[in-house]
Each structure stands twice: as C-alpha cells, then as structure tokens.
C-alpha cells in the first residue's frame, strides 16, 4: 500500500505567550503546546489523499519533551499510526539536526511515496525543515503548495509565491510543504477520538534510529541560540478625540503634517 508520511511539530501556542514583566524575557514554561498550525494543514491534506486513494498515513515527530497528546489528536483526525523520536538530548537542536533526525526516522519507518510538511512552524517560522528533509532523502522538494494532485506516479502542485502561482510536477516519492490556504483542518468527532485511542504510537530514543547524542543538540547544530528578548515598541499612543469625525480628522491630519509623512 502506498504511504504518506506527515511531519508534525509540536510548538508552543504563540497566542498565549507573555513577557515576564520583571525581566522582559519571554515565558514559554507553562504555555500550552499544540500541533503547529501549518502542519495541521499538511495532516488534513494527507488525510484527504488517504481517503481518496486508500493510502496509509503515518505521522513522524521529533522532540525533547512529551508530545503524546498532540499525536493522539493527529490520530483522531485520521492518521493511522504515529512515530515519535523522543530524547532529552535533542534540546538545543537547530533545523539541520532536526531534519537529520527526521531523515533517520523516515528511513526506519520504511518505504514511502509522499512526505508532507507545513510551510513553516508557527513558533520559529524558519521554513527550513521540509526542504532540508527532502534534500537529505534525495527526493524532489516542492514548497508552498496551495493545491496538490496525486496520480499513481506523480504529484502536481500549485505553488503560491510572492507575485505568482506556479504549477509544477515531480515524480513520486517527493516532499511537499503546504500553506494554510490549502484546506481547513477538520475537528475530530468524539467517535474518532475514542477510536484513535486504539491506534499505535511508536516511540523511539535516538539510539533506536542509530543517532548518537553528539550528533544532536547544540553539539551537532550549525546554529545556536544566544538570547531571546521581547521586542520593545516605542509608540506614541496618542488618542485623537473629538465631537465629530471631521474634528478627529482635522486633528489627525495636523499631526501627520507635523510628522512630515503627509504634505509636500
């Protein structure tokens, strides 16, 4: 049976992030985790391909902290099986390491026809892991898909770029990254959630995929994070008030002329 693999990242829910008022540092501890938004679009697309063509669908996730609840959600949505590489040594890994570990995990999962990833993750937004993974697996890479068509041997994709759409085609197996506009991810029914509890989640340590601790984390990475700070926006926040819209408009235009952004 042909197989699709979807790479799922568990990221912090960025809408819940706050700065610690005393230090100005970002607080990520205690913030809830979820499947990164675009990865969910990738999963939804994979489920649709599976439903249409009868393919098998596995997810793969790499992390240094617990991800089970996220994978359960993916299984409830429609994935058949979840593979997780979970190892504390992975902390501090960059996209180069993450994609290398994913490549090893995919190698262990076995044959596949299509890999789907989100265009980027909602926290880091680097858009690197998909293309890097495709490169490591030496298969065609197609990024920024808003439409995917599968035939027996090929994948046809409509890409969204800054100022144009591009229709491209490649032979399978291939890796495609998807945009948010490709679909609306489903919300699993209670029934599906119950059924999913019987589906299998396989968890590997690094040793199980023959990766050593030195190859991951900061020691294996090409980039290390030095500091994370909260940006300061120094805005004036002047409220322009008035009895009528005309009065407000008059005051605003005066200010804009003073700022030198309007007028000669």
């Amino acid at each position: 049976m042909p197989r699709i693999i979807v790479c799922l990242k568990q990221s912090v829910d960025v809408s819940q992030l706050k700065a610690d008022p005393s230090t100005g540092r970002l607080v990520t501890a205690g913030v809830s985790r979820k499947i990164s938004d675009f990865d969910k679009n990738a999963l939804e697309e994979a489920i649709r391909i599976k439903e249409k063509n009868g393919w098998e669908l596995a997810t793969v996730t790499v992390n240094f902290e617990e991800v089970k609840a996220s994978i359960r959600e993916a299984l409830a949505m429609g994935a058949d099986k979840g593979f997780v590489v979970l190892d504390e040594a992975l902390k501090g890994s960059d996209t180069w390491v993450t994609s290398s570990v994913l490549a090893k995990a995919v190698g262990k999962i076995g044959e596949f026809d299509l890999i789907l990833c989100g265009e980027a993750s909602i926290d880091g937004f680097s858009a690197q892991v998909g293309p890097r993974l495709g490169e490591l697996l030496k298969i065609p890479v197609i990024t920024y898909a808003r439409k995917i068509n599968i035939t027996q041997k090929t994948v046809q994709v409509e890409r969204v770029l800054e100022d144009q759409y591009e229709t491209v085609e490649a032979n399978l197996p291939a890796l495609v990254t998807v945009t948010k506009e490709i679909n609306e991810p489903r919300i699993p029914s209670l029934m599906a959630i119950m059924k999913a509890s019987k589906k299998e989640i396989l968890t590997w340590k690094l040793a199980d995929i023959e990766v050593s601790a030195e190859e991951v984390g900061e020691s294996g990475s090409g980039v290390r994070i030095r500091d994370v700070t909260v940006p300061q926006v120094g805005r004036k926040k002047i409220r322009i008030e008035g009895e009528t819209a005309a009065e407000i408009a008059e005051k605003l235009v005066k200010e804009l002329v003073k700022e030198g952004v309007v007028g000669k």
Binding site: T95, Q128, V129, P131, V141, Y144
Partner: peptide, 21 residues
C-alpha cells in the same frame, strides 16, 4: 523570497551547515 528561503535551506543541507532565516 519564498524561493530564496527554500534554496538557502537546501544549500545549507548540502554544505552540512546552519542557516538563520
């Protein structure tokens, strides 16, 4: 650009190095 970010990620992979976007 979108193509540039795709390209840079893959170049970094082929050259076995890091990339900040």
């Amino acid at each position: 650009t979108k193509n540039g970010k795709d390209l840079a990620s893959r170049l970094a992979t082929r050259l076995q190095t890091g990339c900040t976007p």
